[in-house]
Design a binder for these strands. Structure first.
Length: 554
DNA sequence: GCCGTTTTCGGCCCGACTGTTTTCAGTCG
């Protein structure tokens, strides 16, 4: 079954194979197309059916044709030819740490080495000794790369989910702010853009004493190994295996460096081409006209020097945001922390009492949350439903009053209310899809549906399911919940919800620990989807008071 | 292979770091 992910993977493989064949610009063209395809919110087949493949950034005539071949037959003849021409092991050698296409190609063409195991044998046999460009250090490095690839196969540690990286990044940034002689410390890279996964963590420091910053950084307890250290950058590996790159720049260059190291690569390339057109040059130290630095202290300065409005990090993917920033107006204001004055979906534990309710209220007040949806019933992992103890329910009701900005919500599976709560006035339903019922059931009469929660469960086969639920949310006027994790909606699907006209709901993490990463990440995902304040629902929609009387009581 | 209110051809980001090279090539981000 052809899929967007499958097409993207095929183009990445083409890029790798072209790399070892020594092609100069084609590999990046195929990779750019692969990245664009991955961010699509609809199936390639649907785009192809409308004859709009060329509208995908980075897709021209040649790649559009290959997409059509892939959709029709599940394979791409060009890729099959490349696979036939290049031994699979050559790409594997290219992926070894510290090696690249040039070196892999030399091993293959000059020495007849066709893969990592043959490379190991060649090193053991001394076949690299005396080869131009390979001194003892380089040979040792290659040998160690082969060894570590054997221990950790494939592409190494890979990319980590952002919710795992978030607490680590917070700790490192805070520790450097406390212990290093630094003006400013910020995490940059795909972490700052709130990508769903993070490869390496980039941390940027503004300081005039890089050596002292590196010393403080290397001494952090989670640092396992210092991989390299120069005058302006240091790379370490944490005990979790996460690689962290630290860059130190002077304060006058901090904005330019933050812009540069936040990326994305495509966004930066686009900015530089604009700079070139204006007779300017952009690098991580500033925007230059000749030798004169005309901007660099802040990101806003850098964008302004290029005639652009400042672009929020979460949308810097060269998917149209540069053109929007060039229109001469401010960039559309994306939803921010202070817009989130309500939380539709707060859970209290099954045994919650009045003190828990008070704590929740206090947490809400402290974060500027003036309306709360409190789930008084829920669904356990085994599918059974529960309600709060009657006593706690009564206390919640008594404290809630009519104007406290608190409403109750009842969380259900896809089919109706749990029996004990049927008929309660003022209840809104929060519906969560389950594996057993992947599709929405016909809407039963009762309280309105406020929210579809824990949607997602992504993967290729989950795509259609997400689309059906988003469509259903639009029909019944529900919002969809955005957040990290396998059951939540990431930025791609938040984008789909926005395009469908479905409001987003974002958690504030009110009942979690204070450093609960879920809330800021969910906000970042919504911003990646381009969500503005009006796209987010923070309170239940106004509705007429229910006419019918309660038909039962718990 | 893609792209273009300077271009449909001739560009395609740019600097840090390492190892090996006596002035640079390759990798990385």
């Amino acid at each position: 079954m052809p899929s967007n992910a499958g097409a993207a993977e095929a183009f990445r493989e083409i890029a790798d194979l072209l790399d070892v064949l020594g092609e100069r610009f084609k590999p990046e063209a195929y990779r750019r197309a692969a990245r664009s395809i991955e961010t699509l919110t609809e199936e390639l087949a649907a785009v192809a059916a409308r004859n709009e493949l060329r509208s995908i950034p980075g897709v021209g005539d040649a790649i559009a044709e290959k997409i059509r071949e892939y959709l029709a037959t599940g394979s791409i003849p060009y890729l099959e030819r490349l696979r036939h021409d290049v031994p699979a092991g050559v790409v594997a050698m290219m992926r070894l740490s510290g090696l690249g296409p040039k070196t892999a190609r030399r091993f293959w063409v000059d020495l007849g080495i066709e893969g990592p195991s043959a490379l190991a044998a060649a090193i053991d046999a001394g076949r690299l000794d005396g080869v131009k460009g390979f001194g003892p250090k380089k040979i040792a490095q290659v040998r160690s790369a082969v060894e570590s690839a054997r221990i950790a196969p494939a592409t190494g540690p890979g990319r980590a989910p952002i919710e795992e990286v978030y607490p680590v990044a917070e700790r490192i940034v805070n520790a450097l702010r406390a212990r290093a002689p630094a003006d400013r410390v910020e995490a940059a890279g795909s972490f700052r853009r709130r990508r769903e996964t993070v490869g390496d963590l980039d941390v940027l420091v503004s300081s005039t004493e890089p050596e002292a910053v590196f010393d403080a950084f290397s001494a952090l307890p989670e640092v396992r190994e210092v991989r390299l250290r120069g005058g302006t950058k240091e790379t370490v590996v944490l005990s979790t295996g996460l690689q962290v790159d630290l860059r130190v720049v002077e304060p006058a260059a901090f904005g330019a460096a933050l812009q540069y190291f936040t990326g994305s690569k495509d966004h930066n390339v686009h900015l530089r081409s604009i700079a070139r057109d204006r007779g300017l040059k952009v690098n991580e130290y500033g925007v230059y006209r000749g030798d004169e630095r005309v901007a660099g202290r802040t990101e806003e300065e850098v964008y302004a020097a290029l005639g652009l409005a400042w672009v929020p990090p979460e949308v810097r993917e060269d998917q149209g945001e540069v053109e929007a920033a060039a229109k001469g107006r401010a960039f559309p204001r994306l939803v921010d922390d202070h817009d989130l004055t309500g939380d539709l979906h707060v859970h209290l534990p099954e045994a919650a009492d009045a003190a828990d309710v008070d704590r929740l209220r206090a947490a809400a007040r402290a974060r500027g949350v003036t309306s709360l949806g409190v789930v008084v019933g829920g669904v356990r992992a085994d599918g059974s439903t529960f309600v709060l103890a009657v006593d706690a329910r009564a206390r919640l009701d008594a404290r809630e009053g009519r104007s406290a900005g608190v409403w109750r919500a009842v969380e259900t599976g896809p089919t109706g209310l749990p029996p004990p709560l049927r008929g309660l006035e003022h209840d809104y339903r929060i519906v969560r899809p389950t594996r057993d019922a992947p599709d929405p059931a016909p809407l039963a009469p009762g309280a309105p549906v406020l929210l579809v929660a824990h949607l997602g469960g992504g993967g290729e086969e989950g795509v259609g399911r997400v689309r059906r639920w988003v469509e259903w949310a639009r029909e019944v006027g529900a919002a969809v919940e955005v957040g990290p994790g396998p059951e939540r909606l990431d930025a791609t699907w938040a984008r789909l919800a926005r395009a469908t006209g479905v409001p987003l709901a974002l958690p504030r993490g009110l009942t979690g620990p204070t450093d609960d990463p879920t809330a800021p990440i969910a906000l970042g995902f919504a911003r990646r989807a381009g969500a503005e304040p009006r796209d987010v629902r923070v309170a239940p929609p106004k509705r007429a008071e229910p006419r019918r009387r309660p038909t039962g009581s718990p």
